[in-house]
Computed example of a mutant assay.
Amino acid sequence: MGRLDTTLSLDFLKFNTRTDESSSDFESEIDPQIELLIKKVEKLHSLNDGWMGYASAAPSAGALTGAAFFITCMLRPDLPSPDIFPCPNGNIQLEWSCFDIDFEVEIESITQYYTAFEDLASGESWEKALTYDLSEVRAVLLKLVERKSATEDRPTLVHG
């Protein structure tokens, strides 16, 4: 059975779906860090079934598209970059492990996400399957930005 062509590119971002008047060229607004993350997802397209042993599936078209969509819609340039890797079930996972937060988002499609969150500082943790409402994901991502910012704002101590 041949594999569907799931070639990704930034071409889908050329369509201006924004409603504000301040942006006439959405593509020009793509931050280089976001573009780099999209390229990492694009590279996963080259994996075939069996990439990690007999039972591992190649990343699905839904997962590849969903990951690119998630990155462009949910991530910000001031957010720490996630690790991106394929899952043996054909999904794609984004993972952050920094600033006392462990956060995983496994993407099956544009509308299907499996998430796991642990805040080592507060002890809060949860695992959830999410669809259209990603407000909890956005809250965790904002918490990562806040902690990164707080770390960068600390004065550097010089010993000498």
Rank of each mutant, 00 (worst) to 15 (best):
M1Q: 05
M1G: 11
L4D: 10
S9A: 14
S9P: 07
D11N: 13
F12W: 15
L13A: 10
L13V: 11
K14N: 13
F15H: 13
F15G: 08
N16T: 09
T17Q: 07
T19V: 14
T19P: 13
T19F: 15
T19H: 14
S22C: 13
D25S: 12
E27K: 14
P32F: 10
E35V: 04
L37K: 12
K43S: 11
L47G: 04
Y54T: 15
A55K: 05
A55W: 02
S56Q: 03
A57V: 09
A57K: 15
A57E: 09
G62I: 02
A63K: 03
A63D: 05
L64A: 03
T65L: 10
A67G: 04
A67T: 06
A68K: 10
F69C: 06
F70K: 04
T72I: 03
C73D: 12
M74Q: 14
M74L: 15
R76G: 07
P77G: 14
D78P: 01
D78N: 15
D78T: 13
D83G: 01
I84M: 04
I84N: 08
P88E: 12
N89A: 02
N89W: 00
W96V: 12
W96S: 09
F99I: 05
D100R: 12
D100P: 01
D102I: 03
V105S: 00
V105M: 00
S109Y: 01
S109M: 02
I110C: 03
I110E: 06
T115P: 00
A116S: 11
A121E: 14
S125H: 14
W126C: 07
A129H: 00
T131W: 11
T131M: 08
T131D: 11
Y132F: 10
D133P: 02
S135T: 13
E136V: 12
V137S: 03
V140H: 09
V145F: 02
R147I: 13
R154V: 12
P155T: 06
P155C: 08
L157Y: 11
H159I: 14
